[in-house]
Nucleic acid binder design. Structure first.
Lengths: 342, 342
DNA sequence: CTGAAAGCGCTTACAG
DNA sequence: CTGAAAGCGCTTACAG
């Protein structure tokens, strides 16, 4: 490997001067700069990253740890994080822990020990509390997106799942529905729990009774939407509307209704959460799901801004930034009066 | 930041001994080892990554550069790469260039200059030829998946797109179809070009005339499947079967046929490429697309194996590993005799 | 405008 | 079994 000394020798200057050129410092004679750059070009020299980080205590990298890469709206987030970080001349590297805690610890150590200047945790797990607490204690710059801990003070970007869910159900009620089901996510996670809570609150505030048989608990896994909706459709007194934990379940459910001859939205209104339609690369259904939309772009922008602030000053107080979701009007919900004739 | 010297002092030993303990070297008295570990625990010490890489010339990281993260079968690849690398005690970090060449160069420099011991390029672009050539010249360990260059000798993992496409069309022919259309990808990319070539070859070998109006050129972008199939459906003499560049187009096309009242597979058989069904987190269509399946698991396994070999010995000759695709029987193709009555 | 020297936090022969 | 010393490839005061 050619190093800074080789360049210095070839250009007939000192290492110091080469360093100055590399880092675009002012105060180098134009002539010298040219000579150095020629040498760099000729030897195909790239400064050693490890050495630079060691001395400058900066890596120019933001690390992002995903619990698992999955094909949802959050993939788009990755591209956006990259985009915003580039504006600060920062690289972003991602890794997936494949849902393995040991793997997560390995990556956290890797990043915090100098490979990155800051860390964004995405999709944290209740099992991560200890790790998060440790990073926090060390004052290492950290931003958590969709935090699952209430009790740890960290930079946190969240969306208002509770009110989002409430708005979704409220919308169904305004359409005249009173028999409204909910297909949950994994309620041991905060996100799913809050969406369930929002669902309950909307019913309560509108004087609608909560019915156990209208709430199907799932882990939000594959096919959970279709499996859950089957249980609901064949109830003696089936609901006329369903609020699903997320869009994947929503589309999955629509698919299943089609198979069993139930028409959306005429027979059954369905509303989802996340609004993944835009990020799909093909039409996921002929019916576009009505859904609560997350402001992914803003989330990415503020995650990067927060982490940069925290890199600038490690003493900055942790901030919690909450975003509202917005109702996206798709084609999967209809007015109950118009559609049902009982 | 606490460093190795702090630990040495607290444990009452030398830095050398601490280093030995950190790296699990033999020849340290058990008693000493315990003392050192206690000190490490107490001070919450994590060895500085940059310093370690600098001296050991190893980072323990494999870098993966994606052109862009998108929600296809290749996302799954990311998780699998992580899994296989973990078996070698290697971390994998991913980054996306958002289709920006400048960004790609930045990441290549970052990784090759010490941040990673090897690089996997995924979704390389014809514009990348120069970069790839440069990495290759420097003997830096490199594996390219789905290479777009014929003329550069690098470690390359490819799937046999030509024969895969041929098999797909052959299958349609065996079903009795003779009017077979093709919706292409971006044929300036090798992948799409080869699938088109395979399509042509299958027709030729079966004495079926190539018809210009049956081939719709697209860039494989969003909605390209539905847009293309519309052009085909309304031809005076429409085809009875379509081979699409990829599954997203295939599903997109199915969706469109439904909207215009054409039934798949009765009126129109559709076969795709990639078989993304398994990686979708919801049912993408009530009709499961027949498709050419890529052996993603094997691709990931051999990408990691190749890069590790190359890290061990930089002088290893570049290898090209080609995988065959396999026909997955879905529900979107039918026998022409049974379905059409003209 | 330029260079000699110190130091970042480790690991690795080498010596004992 | 343990430690002193050199060195990895840079950057950063400091001096001129």
């Amino acid at each position: 490997m050619t190093n800074i000394f080789d360049i210095a020798r070839l250009a007939g200057v000192s290492k110091t001067t080469v360093s100055r050129v590399i880092n675009n410092r002012s105060g180098v004679k134009e002539e010298t700069r040219v000579k150095v750059n020629e040498a760099i070009e000729e030897l195909n020299y790239i400064p050693n990253q490890a050495a630079r980080s060691l001395v400058s205590r900066k890596s120019g990298v933001i690390g992002v740890i995903y619990n698992v890469f999955n094909a949802s709206v959050y993939l788009n987030l990755a591209n956006l994080l990259e985009k915003y970080a580039a504006q600060y001349n920062y690289n972003v590297v991602f890794c997936s822990t494949n849902d393995d805690c040991g793997s997560k610890l390995r990556y956290v150590q890797y990043f915090t020990s100098g490979a990155a200047d800051g860390l964004i945790l995405f999709g944290s797990d209740c099992r991560d509390a200890e790790v998060v607490q440790k990073i926090r204690d060390s004052k290492y710059p950290l931003v958590v997106i969709e935090n699952y801990f209430n009790d740890i003070k960290v930079n946190d970007i969240i969306i208002d799942n509770y009110n989002g869910a409430k708005k979704a159900v409220q919308y169904l009620i305004e359409l005249g529905h009173t028999k409204i089901a909910h297909i949950t996510g994994n309620v041991s996670h905060k996100v799913a729990f809050e969406r369930l809570s929002g669902y309950k609150a909307a019913l309560r505030e509108n004087g609608i009774e909560y019915r156990d048989e209208y709430v199907v608990f799932t882990d939000a896994g594959e096919r959970s939407g279709s499996e859950a909706i089957e249980k609901i459709i064949f109830l003696n007194d089936p609901p006329t509307a369903v609020f699903t934990f997320n869009d994947m379940q929503g589309y999955d459910a629509i698919q299943k209704t089609r198979e069993v001859g139930v028409h959306v939205p005429q027979d059954m209104s369905i509303i989802g959460f996340d609004n993944i339609y835009e990020v799909m690369h093909y039409i996921p259904s002929s019916i576009r799901l009505t859904s609560m939309m997350q402001p992914i772009d803003k989330i990415a922008e503020s995650a990067i801004r927060l982490i940069m602030e925290n890199i600038e000053s490690r003493e900055a107080e942790p901030k919690v930034i909450s975003f509202d979701t917005e109702l996206y009007y798709g084609e999967s919900c209809s007015n109950r009066e118009l559609s049902c004739e009982d």
